[in-house]
Amino acid sequence: MTSIVRVIERILVPPTDLLGDGVFETLHLRPSGPWLLDEHLARLARSAAILDMPSPSVRLPGDLPDSGALRIIYTRQILDISVSPIPASVLRERRDGVRALAADSGISVRRRPPWSIAAAKSLSYAENFAARRWAARHGADDLIGLSTEGYVLEAPTASVVWLTGDELCTVPPVEAGILPGITAAHLLSRAPSVGLRPAERMITLGELAAADTIWLASSLRGLAEVTSLDGASRTRSPWTPRLLELLGYSATDA
């Protein structure tokens, strides 16, 4: 027992927090500060409420770097704020796009258990990472989850966004029972400024495959264009650099 206790004493978080009973947010750091900070803090509070946790009081340090990933982790025992470089893989996906596979997630949009925390950004990310590993084992970079009814839901760490004609769309989070995507919502709010019509609607995999362009949207990647879906190559879109610029990201980061 002594050796076990000594190991636990070196863990940076309380052992009970390792069970994933908490929430988090990841923000993109820019020279102007954490991007969309108010929106992320509001979602953190909503996530905490879903887990019956009090609203967190977050005070960011005043010496944040001009770029990087800011992560806020909130559990029943700790509130931790850390900064790390943006992984090279994230920058590569923003620049080169991603190969995606679609798969049934086993989740129904019509039948969620009353204790579901799907709308919270919880620390329970083992399934999310497992989904990406499964995609990698099958020659892809990421996965697009489908409901048991055949509707597109989300990627393990991103929202699904697509363009058909002049309509820029994402999945409605309330109807689909998924996490509301901050980057996707902000992109749609800016869509009219570049002549696109924003919309939220449910979509099947066949309809998604027929879209002009598909992206995975998240805080660090911004937009990662889907360059192939289920093995079918897709033509790169001139809208990708334009929308990345609209969001304040660089498409040429290496």
Rank of each mutant, 00 (worst) to 15 (best):
S3Q: 14
I4W: 13
E9A: 06
I11C: 07
I11P: 08
L12K: 15
P15W: 13
P15G: 08
L18P: 07
L18A: 11
G20A: 13
D21A: 12
G22W: 01
G22C: 11
V23D: 01
V23E: 03
E25P: 15
L29R: 14
P31V: 14
P34W: 02
W35D: 15
W35T: 15
E39N: 14
L44A: 02
R46D: 10
R46N: 14
R46S: 15
A49Y: 14
D52L: 10
D52R: 11
M53S: 03
M53W: 02
M53T: 04
S55I: 10
S57E: 12
G62N: 08
P65T: 11
D66Q: 11
L70I: 07
R71Q: 12
I73Q: 13
Y74V: 06
Q77W: 07
Q77R: 10
L79G: 08
L79P: 05
D80C: 07
P87S: 13
S89A: 14
R92L: 12
E93S: 13
R94W: 04
R94D: 04
G97D: 00
L101I: 08
S108N: 05
R110V: 08
R110M: 08
P114H: 09
W115E: 07
W115C: 06
I117Y: 08
A120H: 01
S122T: 13
L123S: 00
S124D: 01
Y125W: 12
Y125I: 03
N128V: 05
N128W: 04
A130R: 10
R133I: 14
R133W: 11
W134E: 08
W134D: 09
A135H: 05
A136C: 10
G139H: 04
A140L: 06
D141N: 00
D141Y: 00
L143W: 00
I144A: 01
I144G: 02
L146W: 01
S147M: 04
G150D: 10
G150F: 10
L153I: 13
L153A: 14
L153G: 14
P156C: 13
P156F: 14
A158T: 15
V161S: 01
T164R: 12
T164V: 12
G165L: 04
G165R: 04
D166E: 15
P172G: 03
P173R: 05
E175K: 06
A176R: 02
G181C: 03
T183C: 03
A185Y: 03
H186R: 15
L187F: 06
R190C: 12
S193F: 01
V194Q: 01
V194G: 02
G195E: 03
R197I: 08
R197N: 07
R197H: 10
P198D: 04
M202W: 10
M202L: 13
G206S: 06
L208H: 00
A209C: 05
A211R: 00
D212G: 00
T213V: 10
L216N: 07
L216G: 11
S219P: 15
L220C: 14
R221P: 11
A224W: 13
V226Q: 07
T227H: 08
L229C: 02
G231L: 07
R234N: 06
R236F: 09
S237P: 09
P241N: 09
R242C: 06
R242F: 05
R242Y: 10
L243G: 03
E245A: 11
E245C: 12
G248F: 15
A254T: 14
